[in-house]
């Protein structure tokens, strides 16, 4: 299974039968590839088979990392609320890194600066959490996906 992931190209060819085409270069049948990918999905190793859009080209140019101060016994609730916003792509509880007291980390996306600020305000309102800091991205140096044949 893992070998199969290493052999898979990180992007599918955009053709009528992409699985057949990939299977051919991998030396297996189309059916075997599709079945294997279905199994990998069931086991959760493959989270999704999907198109990854370019934030920039689809207009979502702004992204802010927002870090939140949240009491330990409130993190489960707060994390669930934050995750329910579609503007939030990532929400984690993290270690403070011996740097500060912020424990919930969200990535907030928007088409404008104002749109991001509005989402952050909405999150604060809905969670009742007002101790947070916002770090807008100024420059993107790298953005790729995790892939077995890159790491």
């Amino acid at each position: 299974m893992i070998k199969l992931l290493e052999d898979m190209p990180s992007q599918f060819p955009i053709t009528e039968r992409p699985y057949r085409e990939m299977a051919e270069t991998m030396g297996i049948s189309e059916e075997e590839l599709i079945d294997a990918l279905k199994d990998l999905k069931t086991s959760g190793i493959v989270r999704r088979v999907a198109a990854v859009l370019s934030h920039r080209n689809t207009g979502y140019v702004y992204n802010a990392m927002v870090v939140w101060k949240v009491d330990e016994d409130d993190r489960e609730r707060a994390g669930a609320v934050m995750g329910s916003f579609h503007e939030v792509s990532h929400c984690y509880e993290r270690d403070t890194g011996s740097y500060w007291d912020y424990t919930l980390y969200t990535m907030v996306h928007g088409k404008t600066h104002e749109e991001c600020m509005k989402s952050i305000e909405d999150i604060a309102q809905r969670t009742g959490l007002w101790e947070y800091r916002i770090f807008f991205s100024k420059r993107e140096f790298k953005k790729t996906s995790f892939s077995m044949n890159h790491v």
């Binding site: 893992i2 990998l40 370019s54």
Partner: peptide
């Protein structure tokens, strides 16, 4: 036109046993 970055698998690196870290 660049609206789609790629079509492919979105992997769960934790299930594959990889470690990951955010750094500042």
């Amino acid at each position: 036109k660049g609206f789609i970055r790629r079509i492919g698998l979105i992997l769960e690196r934790k299930k594959l046993g990889y470690a990951s870290l955010l750094c500042g």
